[in-house]
């Protein structure tokens, strides 16, 4: 069972932008992720008022990462698929209590300290 600090990143993007999100995360050290299909619920009144169409088709990219990569990956997601991009994505992270089944190498506390 994993003892090292892990974070679960959820990145919600417009449909078709999950690959871009995953590429951005991988460049920063993420190993893999899982894509869920979802439907966004925008404020329809605001859409009409501002004459903006918000695509309801969304994809959620779920990525499990070591805690030390969190900042880099969140910044990369903001840059590549953030609200100011066609991906119109938002990303947030949740603290993982425990995890099993991960394949990326486990690090001992000594190794982590040496790296820092």
């Amino acid at each position: 069972m994993k003892k090292q600090e892990l974070q679960a990143i959820f990145c919600i993007v417009n449909a078709g932008f999950s690959d871009a999100a995953m590429e951005a995360a991988k460049r920063m050290g993420a190993q893999g992720g899982t894509v869920l299909h979802a439907r966004g619920t925008a404020n329809t009144e605001a859409e009409k008022r501002f004459r903006v169409a918000v695509s309801p088709e969304k994809e959620i990219v779920l990525i499990l990462i070591p805690g030390k990569l969190k900042e880099d990956i969140l910044h990369a997601l903001y840059r590549e698929v953030g609200p100011n991009t066609p991906g119109q994505g938002i990303a947030f992270s949740l603290p993982v209590d425990r995890a099993v089944g991960l394949t990326f190498a486990e690090e001992s506390p000594e190794e982590t300290e040496k790296e820092e």
């Binding site: 069972m1 499990l64 949740l94 603290p95 099993v100 089944g101």
Partner: peptide, 25 residues
């Protein structure tokens, strides 16, 4: 949760084509 995670870990290892990951938040 911990007991469930340990059980899942074992199943991920032993079940044929049953590999996966699990975590708790």
């Amino acid at each position: 949760a911990e007991e469930a995670l340990r059980y899942l870990e074992e199943k991920f290892r032993t079940l044929k084509n049953g590999k996966g990951i699990a975590f708790t938040v």
